[in-house]
Design a protein around this nucleic acid. Structure first.
Lengths: 231, 231
DNA sequence: TGTACATCAGTGAACGCGCGTTCACTGATGTAC
DNA sequence: TGTACATCAGTGAACGCGCGTTCACTGATGTAC
């Protein structure tokens, strides 16, 4: 009983540290994660943090894993909320959710998809599984793509032959049961929305196309229509 | 005469400072630009740097402007080297040059298109013109797109109506004489290659598609074919 | 239920470090007559 | 051509700051009998 109370307290403080770190990252940038600054914000001494994280690296790793998971959660939730609507709509919902999360949490997005933090090396064993989850919702949706597609533009009808071996390897490695073409289209879709998003996040897109959301939406729609998934 | 010697010396040191800064960024990340570290590398005292740059901000701004210009130079050079080959090939050359420069200079690329540096605010008046140059080569090529296109996929035949006002504004503001559709296609192409590139640079693409270059190439080819520019 | 003991969150002082920037200065380079 | 003067690149000392991490410690919380 009492033990539980201490554990709860511990978990709460652990969470608070990460929250404060995220808040500070918004102001200082991802490279600015500082144990002393966090402690100051929390009215604690800096050494106390070492009871929660082995060192600064460990904290950053935790933040990265959290970010990957939060993004994946958000995307999966959007997919579930789209329920049994037509595939095209569900894909749309998922891709919009990706953007929405990125804009709502730009610093976490930077943390996982932006510049590496100087002096920090992400331990792949810890990070990679969480990163893979980010693709899960998309990949699973895409498993349905094989069935019931409308007419697709030539660009999306076949996987480029030179890429086939890689997607075959991916399929085998991850145990996906989606058809190869579906995996390929997922990768294409992801890289495209990501490009728009990154440019928007660093304010390089707006001078060009004015409204980031409108451009994003129109690109996704055009792409899904091209892929024969929009009916 | 002698005056020239001093000026030359000055310009050389100025250049060296930036070179050392770039070299250090490779090791420390873009956020790690440090005047003291640069001075140390150069066997100078740190205060001496203040004869060349007003402060750290000014140095970073110079690095950013240089990076934009170097990228633009590289892309323009590729375009000129492609001479009078068919439009599709010239576009291919330009888009490949974009990737090539980014991979050869990942830190400079991060500097202009990655996370903002904490505590640094880019002065848009200085930065924007250089940034715009980056698009120049593409935009100019695209001015030719109107003529002699092959059959294009539906996705690329018209500019989405909701985006038209923005591209009209862009056309007017920048004084481009390319047709609206061409400007739109340029923006589309840019955002797409940028997405692939960013994922590749943070090593998130490779686990998915194995070979970044192959994927990039195949995507650009498919896109140009779709746009009816590949003949 | 009370008591002795173990656990462990949190503390303040200290270590050695790096940072941007200022200041008053020296001494070489360049200019004007 | 030589001399007096102005310019200005570069110096070392110092300012006040923040950082991650260690250490020996205190005192509250939880455990075992």
């Amino acid at each position: 009983m009492n033990e539980t109370r201490r554990q709860k307290q511990r978990a709460a403080v652990n969470e608070e540290i990460k929250e404060v770190a995220r808040r500070l990252m918004v102001e200082q940038g991802t490279a600015g994660v500082s144990l002393r600054a966090i402690a100051r914000q929390m009215d604690m001494s800096a050494p106390a943090l070492y009871h929660y994280f082995a060192n600064r690296e460990a904290l950053i790793t935790a933040l990265i894993v959290d970010a990957f998971n939060a993004l994946a959660d958000h995307v999966e939730q959007a997919r579930e909320a789209a329920g049994s609507r037509p595939l095209g709509e569900r894909l749309m919902a998922v891709l919009l959710a990706y953007r929405q999360w990125a804009l709502a949490n730009p610093v976490d997005f930077e943390l996982i998809y932006g510049n590496p933090i100087p002096g920090y090396d992400a331990p792949q064993e810890v990070t990679a599984p969480a990163a893979a989850r980010g693709l899960a919702a998309l990949a699973e949706l895409i498993a349905e793509v094989g069935q019931g597609r409308g007419p697709a533009a030539e660009e999306y009808q076949v996987i480029p032959p030179e890429l086939e071996p890689f997607f075959q390897a991916l399929q085998k490695r991850e145990g996906y049961d989606a058809p190869l073409l579906a995996l390929y289209l997922a990768a294409v879709a992801w890289s495209r929305v990501h490009g728009i998003l990154m440019l928007e996040l660093v304010n390089q897109l707006q001078p060009l196309v004015g409204d980031g959301e409108l451009f994003y939406r129109s690109q996704v729609e055009a792409m899904l229509r091209g892929m024969g998934l929009k009916g």
